[in-house]
Simulated scan of single mutants.
Amino acid sequence: MFRREIDYAYFAARLGWTPEQYGSLTPVQLSFVRKELETRTVRDSEIMQHATEVAVANVLRKKGRKLLELWKKVQPEHSAPPVTKSEFDLLKQAFASKYGKRQRMTTE
């Protein structure tokens, strides 16, 4: 009976939305927002569960054993540049042919 008001109360409480913001979204958009909130809640719960498991394991560890790390350092992945050198040289040539070479301004 009051489904729309219940939905608005949910989004207002979770996200601080005004009635205008809530009313401007379609039902499909609202369902995607609701799903994303659910995903975030699950992810936060899993992080809390992992932190609790690590804390308990560290408390109950035997003397002399190494502590478990809460956060593992992740090495940055070396990804390919978005533009290869040959593509960049072609772009430079196209730019130079279109706009010509500009003189470098010197300040004296």
Rank of each mutant, 00 (worst) to 15 (best):
A55W: 06
L30W: 11
R3P: 00
E20I: 05
K35F: 07
R102H: 08
Y8Q: 03
Q21I: 01
W17C: 02
H50C: 02
T52H: 08
T107G: 02
Q93A: 14
K73V: 14
R3M: 07
T84F: 05
T26H: 02
V54G: 01
P19H: 05
S86K: 12
A57F: 02
L37R: 01
K73W: 03
E77T: 10
D89R: 14
V59A: 14
R14Y: 13
I6A: 14
Q93L: 14
V83H: 08
T26Y: 02
E20Q: 13
R14S: 14
S79D: 06
A51Y: 01
Y10K: 14
S86G: 00
R14K: 15
A96Q: 09
R61A: 11
R14Q: 15
D7G: 15
Q21P: 00
R4C: 03
E46M: 13
M105H: 06
E20A: 15
R3V: 10
E5Q: 10
D7C: 04
L25T: 01
H50M: 02
R4T: 12
T26I: 03
F11P: 01
R61Y: 04
V56A: 08
R65C: 09
M105Q: 09
A12P: 01
K62N: 11
F95P: 00
I6T: 12
Y10E: 12
M1W: 07
E87H: 03
T52C: 05
S45A: 14
E36M: 04
E53F: 03
K66H: 04
V54E: 05
T106F: 11
